[in-house]
Design a protein around this nucleic acid. Structure first.
Length: 815
RNA sequence: GCCGGGAUGGCGGAAUUGGUAGACGCCUGGGACUUAAAAUCCCAUGUCCUUUAUGGGCGUGUCGGUUCGAGUCCGACUCCCGGCACCA
């Protein structure tokens, strides 16, 4: 083969013609829904993308050969920030650039031999799709799961625009370097917290998800059991009747006696309330102003060194011992989590410990670590484990567990504490002050208030004809014929919501739409969806482990509760692929380290590149890209091709199989077994290497050989190198029909078992000899054989203490 | 800062359950074939020592532990990567 492009195109057209990837959706028997996370249509796809899609395609082709009724659709997560930025910068309409990118990507996917059920293609930015994203929002609204509240955004005063966290670089606007400020806006939220417990609990049912993803989700939801404790505020001027409290949440009420100060978030409302009593008001106000976060991102807030200022003139009363303790305003307590205030226990919390050291606050040990690891709070660390209470008056000697119960119960009697379960998970802020997204179907009427758009009026169409200003303010806001509308209830002049939705909503339900992308009546066809879902295999980047996968699970559960779907979790099995790294960084256009596969494909063919990309590492791991090895895969395919030219004649496959030489027979069946097992666990790299071993074995074999070994190799290789294998299968081996319509080969165990066993003989765990013996001989016989071995004599210089025998494998002599 | 993951030759990696570390491929060196080149084939290729036949020591990020036996399990640490709620 020398003209790859022609041969590859021919087979790509052939697969179209035989509808290899077009499923029969009416028949869901033996179904296999293989789903790749749909991509954002960025410019051209690079090697990193190619890795993801060949991985999915290889699995899909393997499943076809196994006889599954495969459904593997593809679509476009087409709304989002980059297209809008490009529009602002270059004046090209997002719809235009998106369409162009999609065309490029489809062409590339095709050239790679990556097949999809293109008749089911979806695009989240088309009105046919986002109409139903809006419908979904209305369902959530109807059930009280969508609500409005104030929330902060990054705002660039110079560009007059809201910035994404990504656009804030060290507190400054990425476009104009102006210091970013925070702005409070009324925004829409989805009540994902109402599902916190179920999202957590049902992780247990996801047995085919990677543990690491489940752990990350679990920690993200962050369920903690503890108590909310009230600290009274003392001030000379504060009368008893209008007592103020500061509430804190703690998982460690057992350490209450070690609490030596309270720490408040800079946004805690009590500061404003106590204003008149604070002696160092100026100082506090100055501190709050200075530390006013320049970014709303947690990593910026918690990533820097902690600081704080003591509030003078007021003290808090520790409810367990009535001790007066200072109150500090600090920058390491988030208003969003818990009560916005914490009780600080420097002896038993590392952050508090460091803070106390810095500002010379008292550190009081109240928990004694259980021996044998006596761990007093050393000069360097807090002891964060549990243990026995000390310095805690009547609770001394109790275990942490007992003390938690008892102290909480005692405080509860006095109305000073309450048992609580707290989640770290926050509600999902979905409002975006941007153009290129799904409009939120809400109308604000001066008389009737906030109203959902009636379903019959959907979709709220995103106006095409808008102006993108260099400043970057959302063009929807200025589009008066979009904003102005009439109230669906009273008919008076009303205003549309100008914000659009987070694109994560688009991607939280798309897997349902694929079954009926042209449906005009419903978002999805429940009866089809219930037969074809949950998705058998979901494949995507590990960077989506938390947000996208949690949002999709949440929306699915919501739809389940509404009885639109009858499955509780959308994705049965999840595979997270690794990233392609170049020069130590994730390959991405913004980092300027992308490698495009096109020239490699031109030189070596798509199959060699596919093979190489799957060969260099297991698909779950990150891999550093180096184009040099592609040639090796090309050589490998050439070698297979040469064997193809030297096989002999016809006969029935079964007969050919019988005639084969015994050792070759064993190698073939061993390889089938190995490749099949590797396919199941996504170890495509070792699957390929064992096919290579068989090819090496065969190429050293006296020729001609019968067709059976080569046919097997072609079948095993077909999912990886589809064009090449189809060509050999049909045009060299002269088989009728597609190689993918031929069943995946099966192995027979009886051919695999070797007669002899190779025994590794060790002395004190070090390899000293290898001997071949009959399989399954008794331990006694084996020991005798081993001890007779000449080459061992020189090692057995001391008396033998013990002999460890692992049958058919290893003998370790301990001297 | 917090959560999750990773580290094995010159390079990508293999070793699936604690049992021969380095499969397979790349790079590099040597040889065969050839008028020559390409292609192909063969050999070598962790490292050090003794050199020559055998061999032996060391070696899976660092330090320590468990075990007859550790890349794999446990503890502490270092560095790198992903995520941290408006990139998707």
């Amino acid at each position: 083969m020398n003209n790859y492009s022609d041969i590859e195109k021919r087979w790509q057209n052939y697969w179209d013609k035989i509808k290899l990837f077009e499923p029969d959706l009416k028949n869901s028997e033996h179904k296999y829904y293989c789903l790749m996370m749909f991509p954002y249509p960025s410019a051209a796809l690079h090697i990193g993308h190619m890795r993801n899609y060949t991985l999915g395609d290889t699995l899909a082709r393997y499943k076809i050969m196994q006889g599954f009724n495969l459904f593997t659709p593809m679509g476009w997560d087409a709304f989002g920030l980059p297209a809008e930025n490009a529009a602002i910068k270059d004046g090209i309409h997002p719809a235009e650039s998106t369409a162009k990118n999609i065309a490029t990507m489809k062409k590339q996917l095709r050239e790679w031999g990556v097949g999809y059920a293109w008749s089911k293609e979806i695009n989240s930015s088309s009105p046919e799709y986002y109409k139903w994203t809006q419908w979904l929002f209305l369902q959530l609204y109807k059930k009280g799961l969508a609500y409005r509240k104030k929330a902060k955004v990054n705002f660039c005063p110079s560009c007059q625009t809201v910035l994404a966290n990504e656009q804030v670089i060290e507190g400054k606007c990425e476009r104009c370097s102006t210091a970013v400020v925070q702005k409070e806006l009324e925004q829409w939220f989805l009540k994902i917290t109402a599902y916190a417990e179920r999202l957590l609990e049902d992780l247990n049912t996801l047995t085919k998800w990677p543990e690491k993803v489940k752990t990350m989700q679990k920690n993200w939801i962050g369920r903690s059991e503890g108590a909310e404790v009230k600290f009274k505020i003392k001030n000379a001027k504060l009368a008893m009747q209008n007592e103020e409290f500061i509430k804190v949440f703690t998982t460690r009420p057992d350490t209450l006696f070690g609490c030596t100060y309270l720490a408040l978030s800079t946004e805690h409302p009590i500061i404003e309330k106590l204003k008149s009593k604070i002696e160092n008001r100026k100082e506090i106000e100055k501190y709050i102003k200075e530390t006013k976060r320049q970014s709303i991102s947690t990593r910026d807030i918690l990533g820097k060194e902690k600081s704080g200022v003591e509030i003078k003139g007021v003290k808090a009363i520790n409810p367990v011992n009535n001790q007066k303790i200072p109150i500090w305003v600090v920058d390491y307590v988030l208003m969003e989590y818990g009560t916005g205030a914490i009780m600080a226990v420097p002896a038993h919390d590392q952050r508090d410990f460091e803070f106390a050291k810095k500002y010379n606050l008292p550190i009081r040990q109240v928990i004694k670590a259980p021996s044998p690891k006596p761990q007093a709070p050393s000069p360097k660390r807090a002891y964060e484990g549990e243990g026995a209470l000390i310095n805690s008056e009547k609770y001394n000697g109790l275990s942490s567990q007992e003390a938690k119960e008892k102290i909480t119960a005692d405080l509860q009697k006095k109305g000073l504490a309450e048992k609580k379960v707290l989640y770290r998970l926050r509600d999902w802020l979905i409002s975006r002050q941007r153009y290129w997204g799904t409009p939120i179907p809400i109308i604000y009427c001066p008389k009737c208030g906030t109203l959902p758009l009636p379903g019959k009026d959907l979709p709220v169409v995103l106006p095409r004809d808008v102006q993108f200003k260099p400043g970057g303010e959302s063009p929807l806001k200025r589009k008066s014929n979009f904003i102005q509308t009439t109230c669906p209830k009273c008919g008076s002049l009303a205003r549309r919501e100008a914000d659009t939705m987070d694109t994560f909503i688009d991607s939280s339900w798309y897997y349902l739409r694929y079954l009926s992308p042209q449906d005009k009546k419903d978002a999805f066809n429940s009866s089809l969806v219930n037969r074809w879902l949950p998705v058998n295999q979901y494949i995507g980047g590990v960077e989506h482990a938390i947000m996208h996968l949690l949002y999709a699970r949440f929306i699915n559960k919501f739809l389940y509760d509404c009885e639109f779907v009858n499955f509780n979790e959308p994705f049965t099995s999840l595979f997270t692929q690794g990233m392609v790294i170049k020069d130590g960084l994730k390959m991405s256009k913004s980092k300027g380290n992308v490698v495009y596969p096109d020239t490699l494909i031109e030189k070596y063919g798509a199959d060699a590149v596919r093979l190489y990309i799957l060969f260099i590492a297991p698909p779950g791991k990150d891999v550093e890209w180096n184009s040099e090895g592609v040639a090796g895969m090309w050589r490998f395919l050439k070698k297979v091709e040469r064997i193809g030219l030297r096989v002999e004649g016809g006969g029935k496959r079964k007969e050919r199989e019988q005639k084969i030489e015994k050792n070759l027979q064993r190698e073939i069946h061993k390889t089938i077994k190995k490749v099949t097992e590797d396919m199941e666990r996504f170890h495509f790299n070792t699957a390929i290497s064992s096919i290579m071993e068989l090819v090496n074995y065969l190429s050293r074999f006296p020729f001609p050989v019968s067709r059976f070994p080569l046919e097997t190799i072609i079948l095993l290789l077909a999912p990886f190198a589809p064009h090449f294998c189809e060509e050999i299968w049909q045009n060299v081996l002269k088989n009728k029909g597609s190689v993918f319509k031929h069943p995946w080969p099966r192995y027979e165990s009886r051919f695999i078992q070797p007669e002899k066993a190779l025994i590794i003989v060790q002395v004190n765990g070090k390899l000293r000899a290898k001997i071949e013996v009959e399989r399954d001989i008794s331990e006694k016989e084996l020991k005798e054989l081993v001890l007779k071995e000449e080459q061992l004599k020189k090692w057995l210089t001391k008396p033998i203490k013990k002999i460890v025998v692992v049958p058919n494998q290893i003998v370790n002599i301990v001297i």
